[in-house]
Design a protein around this nucleic acid. Structure first.
Length: 475
RNA sequence: GCCGGGGUGGCCGAGCAGCGAGGCGGCGGCCUGCAGAGCCGCUCUACAGGGGUGCAAAUCCCCUCCCCGGCUCCA
């Protein structure tokens, strides 16, 4: 039984999807007008682990994550894509393509599994226009010049997700259009200025979609009118998700639009949200130059997805240490599974392993408590590391497989494919190791150590064990 | 101003009424030709502050302080 904290109710709820066994999940993707940063990594790694765990628990998951490439306005009223386009002196569609591809690459490198569907806002303009027309026909939308606004006053329960009442919305960074019926009314469609490179023809003039409508339209198109999970960073609760609910429930008349709302905590650097103006902006590409994908992932999963994380070098060092502990343990088990002489199963040992696995599942089932689940993983390591040399070949293989299974369910220690080049090099490494073994046998340790150091400098770590060496390539 | 989220031992970080989560770091020891990995022990009146309720509070209530976020830009 999985329990999930639902932002809508602010409570832990038993997870029961609309259709037993099948989970539909929509996560708000990036606006592709600039490179992806650590905050994106936090959110999408968290959801990656959640989705992997849902599948691990036997659910079949249909996962959509959008790409917003139009309509996301800045406070000055310009589309973010236009800003990016002016900076790069390119058409907005080129800008969208460039950053979308870079985003995909960053996610791949982080080991974030690709969603089943990655719909793009600009490819759904006809559906968006249709939805806006429908809202106008139904009386939820009204036209002001060439723009269409959603009439918040038509929905008595507007504000139910963020627990904000429209009359509380008194602070404005830009003064709202005074002709709006209610200052809280938001744009479904915006009229475009003349010569605007990113606009479409509609019954009410040329323009482009408002920010929130694309998510309503695309999630309905691909996942249905009601979905199980909708996620994103918690800064999206208001206005984005609140407005999605308003539009979607108005359009379909079906409630709830989303059964469980999940929001990830913010990632801060030096205690503050990342902003280019603060000088604490770290891109995914930058972080991957200093740390591996698993190191970043372990850092992120070391905090619960809902709590804020502060990035620091020190926290990363701790993640580095913890990851090598997991990796070393897995490697030792694999080594034992290949080299151990003893055969046959030890029931006591397997029972203990199974118990820890159960604990791990319980931890993850409590609102995806990854820090607790990691503690269970560490308990597994601590329990079996002392006996690793006396394991039978079968038990080592058994422990190895369930340990890897647990790690994989969080997206950690995924299969590391042997790169063809390293397979070739391995032949030569073996020759070196053979010579080194002879040197050690003869007591010529200075030369043996020199070989080990020289290999280490090239990223080939040789560790002497009781029986043979363990070789690790790369960091 | 309104609405959220936080403040836990040197550091990271669970717990959210009742056995001292866990990890990192540090110190000491074991193992090893050395290194690495690993093991053992120590590092334990930690819960922002002050009141209150309870047999029992980090956990519930009240007040105060600090940090962060949202309030039509954001993962």
């Amino acid at each position: 039984m999985i329990k999930i904290y639902n932002t809508m109710t602010r409570n832990l709820e038993v997870f029961e999807p609309f259709n037993p066994g099948l989970v539909t999940i929509y996560v708000c993707g990036p606006t592709v007008y600039d490179v992806a940063h650590l905050g994106h990594a936090r959110t999408y790694i968290a959801f990656d682990a959640i989705i992997r765990f849902l599948e691990f628990s036997g659910f079949s998951v249909k996962y959509a994550r959008n790409v917003t490439d139009v309509g996301h306005l800045r406070e000055t009223g310009e589309d973010r894509m236009i800003v990016g386009a002016e900076r790069l002196r390119k058409h907005p569609m080129e800008v969208a393509d460039k950053y979308m591809m870079e985003f995909f690459r960053d996610m791949d490198e982080l080991g974030v599994r690709r969603p089943d569907i990655q719909p793009r806002a600009s490819m759904h303009i006809p559906e968006i226009i249709e939805a806006v027309e429908k809202l106008v026909d139904m009386g939820y939308g009204y036209v002001l010049d060439g723009s269409v606004y959603f009439d918040v006053g038509k929905l008595p329960d507007y504000g139910k997700l963020s627990k904000i009442r429209p009359e509380q919305l008194v602070m404005h960074r830009i003064d709202p259009d005074p002709r709006k019926k209610n200052p809280a009314d938001f744009a479904l469609w915006k009229e475009s200025p003349p010569n605007y490179p990113f606009s479409w023809k509609t019954p009410w003039g040329r323009g482009f979609p408002g920010w929130h409508i694309e998510c309503s339209v695309m999630s309905m198109k691909y996942l249905g009118e009601q979905i199980d999970i909708h996620g994103g960073g918690q800064e999206l609760i208001f206005p984005h998700h609140e407005n999605e609910i308003a539009q979607s429930e108005a359009l379909t008349g079906k409630k709830p639009f989303v059964k469980y709302w999940l929001h990830t905590g913010e990632l801060t650097v030096g205690g503050k949200g990342m902003h280019k103006s603060y000088g604490n902006f770290i891109t995914i590409r930058e972080i991957l130059q200093s740390y591996s994908a698993d190191q970043v992932r372990l850092f992120i999963l070391s905090s619960h997805y809902r709590t804020p994380i502060d990035y620091s070098e020190k926290a990363m060092e701790q993640a580095v240490e913890n990851l090598s502990k997991l990796v070393n343990f897995a490697e030792s088990l694999r080594h034992a599974a290949e080299e151990a002489q003893k055969q046959g199963p030890d029931d006591m040992l397997r029972t203990k392993a199974y118990q820890i696995r159960e604990k791990f599942l319980e931890s993850m089932s409590e609102d995806f408590n990854t820090p607790k689940a990691l503690a269970d993983l560490y308990e597994f390591v601590k329990t079996f590391n002392p006996v690793i040399n006396g394991l039978s070949r079968d038990d080592a293989a058994y422990l190895h497989s369930i340990f890897k299974e647990m790690c994989n369910s969080l997206g950690l220690l995924r299969k590391t494919e042997k790169k063809p080049s390293t397979v070739d090099a391995y032949e030569y490494i073996r020759i070196i190791l053979e010579v080194r073994r002879e040197l050690r046998r003869r007591g010529i340790y200075d030369l043996a150590d020199q070989l080990r150091n020289m290999l280490a400098e090239r990223g080939i770590v040789v560790e002497d064990l009781k029986e043979g060496e363990r070789v690790r390539i790369g960091r």
